[in-house]
C-alpha cells in the first residue's frame, strides 16, 4: 500500500533509462524514494537507479516492492503533458496499480516481483576514471553507428578515446586529458563494448551534462550519472567483449 506523486519529467527520465534494459522491472517504493535494479536478459548489462525522497512530491504508506510493466507506464506518460503531476496508487490486496494524470485514471495489473530477475550486482572496480561531457559522447556514438557494432573505449594519460573500426573504415573520438573535468589513470586501459547497448544507455541519460566513466582492461564499464537534477542518481554496468584465441 502506498501513494506517490511525482513530476512527469522525473518519472519519464527514470522510465526511459530502465526501458533500455528490461520490459519489466521491480521497484522498491518507500519514503526514501524509489529504487530499481535491473539486468538485461543476456546478463550483459545492469542498472542501479535511485530517485531520492526529494524527487517525490508526496509519499504515504509503507515500503513496498512491486513489479511493473515498463511499457504500460510509458503509455500513461504519453498521455501526460510537461508539468503534470502523476499519482501512483498501489493497493496491495487487489494487485493493481492505479495511475492518475489530469483527468485520466488507468488501472494496471502488476507483475509478480518474484518472477523478475533480481540482479546480483558484481563488485566492479575499474581502475580508470574519466568525467566526459554527454554531448561529446553522443557525438562519438553517432560517429560510430555507421561503422561497426562495437566500440572500443581507451583511457590513457593523453585522454579518452572512443574508437570504432569496420572492415574498411574507422572513426575516433579523442578528448584530450585537459578537456576532461576529471581523469584518473595509471596504466592505459582499453575494453571493447557492444555499441547498441552503450548507445542506448548513453542516449537514455537525458538530464546529466556529464557522466563518470569507470574503465578497465577487458573489464566492465561503469557509467555513473545523475537524473532529475540532484534528486536522483544511477549507474549502468556493461560487460566487455573479450577476444579469445
Amino acid at each position: 500500500m502506498f501513494k506517490v506523486r511525482i513530476r512527469m519529467e522525473v518519472l519519464r527520465e527514470a522510465v526511459e533509462i530502465i526501458s533500455t534494459l528490461v520490459a519489466e522491472v521491480k521497484l522498491t517504493v518507500s519514503k526514501d524514494g524509489i529504487d530499481a535494479k535491473a539486468v538485461d536478459p543476456s546478463h550483459v548489462a545492469m542498472l542501479i537507479l535511485k530517485l531520492k525522497d526529494t524527487a517525490l512530491e508526496l509519499f504515504t504508506g509503507e515500503t513496498t516492492e512491486i513489479g511493473v510493466d515498463v511499457e504500460k507506464i510509458k503509455e500513461v506518460l504519453r498521455l501526460s503533458r510537461p508539468g503534470d503531476i502523476i499519482e501512483l496508487q498501489y493497493e496491495g490486496g487487489k494487485n493493481r496499480l492505479v495511475v492518475s494524470v489530469g483527468k485520466i485514471t488507468r488501472h494496471m495489473g502488476v507483475v509478480d516481483p518474484a518472477g523478475i530477475t533480481d540482479p546480483k550486482i558484481p563488485n566492479v572496480t575499474p581502475p580508470g576514471v574519466a568525467v566526459v561531457k554527454m554531448d561529446e559522447l553522443r557525438q562519438g556514438i553517432r560517429g560510430s553507428e555507421s561503422i561497426s557494432d562495437h566500440v572500443t573505449l581507451v583511457l590513457d594519460a593523453t585522454g579518452f578515446t572512443m574508437h570504432s573500426e569496420g572492415e574498411t573504415d574507422k572513426v575516433d573520438l579523442h578528448i584530450p586529458a585537459a578537456s576532461l573535468s576529471r581523469i584518473e589513470v595509471k596504466d592505459a586501459v582499453r575494453s571493447m563494448y557492444p555499441l547498441d547497448f552503450f548507445s542506448n544507455m548513453v542516449k537514455s541519460i537525458t538530464s546529466s551534462e556529464e557522466v563518470t566513466l569507470h574503465l578497465g582492461n577487458e573489464y566492465p564499464l561503469k557509467i555513473e550519472f545523475q537524473l532529475a537534477g540532484d534528486r536522483g542518481e544511477g549507474r549502468f554496468l556493461l560487460a566487455p567483449r573479450v577476444e579469445e584465441d
Binding site: V44, P126, A239, V242, E244
Partner: peptide, 17 residues
C-alpha cells in the same frame, strides 16, 4: 576462427581486474 569474440556476462567479473 582465430580471434573469436565472446561476450561474458557481468556476473563473471567479481572483484577488481
Amino acid at each position: 576462427g582465430r580471434g573469436r569474440r565472446s561476450h561474458p556476462t557481468l556476473e563473471e567479473f567479481r572483484g577488481p581486474p
